[in-house]
Amino acid sequence: MSSELIRYKDICVDFHGSRLFSNFNLTVNLGDKLILKGRSGSGKSTLLKILLGILRVDDGEVFYRGKKVSSSNIWDIRKEIAYVSQDTDIGEGIVKDLINEIFSFDHNRGRKYHRKRNSLLEYFGLDRSIVYKKFEGLSGGEKQRICIIISVLLGKEIFLLDEVTSALDPELKEKVVDFFLENEDWTLLVVSHDNTWDRVAMDEVFVDGCEINA
């Protein structure tokens, strides 16, 4: 018994004048844990961005909970999906202020997060004092973990994780992978070159079939 959450149907995407995908199809069911594989530049991140309406398809359709993704429902879709981009540059200023501002958004207001934030910091090996540091001064690995923590604090159940463990050392990679795979209800769509994700049984999807840019 599986219910369909996301469906990419005959997706075609052109990038810089050449075709990145033609007729890509993928169905993601609720609770699925998928890892997208394929060489760099094959468009794995693009697939995530399409679902979030950051990029648009040239042909084909994306369905979310059975409805076609469009400008009218994209704003609600974004509120249901947690996205951790491989670009960890999410803002500047004191980490605490950055997090507080996110929780001052209309949609997140009233969500309690302080206690959970502290326990997550601890779990991911960050000292609590990090929240008083400037985000832009943190290391790549620290930024990655802060991004992950924010995405978890938002209380969503669908995660798009784009190379979220790339800057972490092996132990932390394990911790992140464990953390996300532990929760059976969560739906994960992961892009990663880390083989840490491979040690568990995740369904693999190969993204390929594109032309190479000259």
Binding site: L52, I54, W75, R78, K79, I81, A82, Y83, S85, D87, D89, I90, G91, I102, F105, D106, H107, N108, C147, I150, S151, L154
Partner: peptide, 16 residues
């Protein structure tokens, strides 16, 4: 642009 996109994915409305 990534900062803007991140905020959208963190639940911000456009003005936020």
């Amino acid at each position: 642009e990534n900062r803007y996109v991140s905020r959208l994915s963190f639940g911000a409305g456009m003005n936020e």
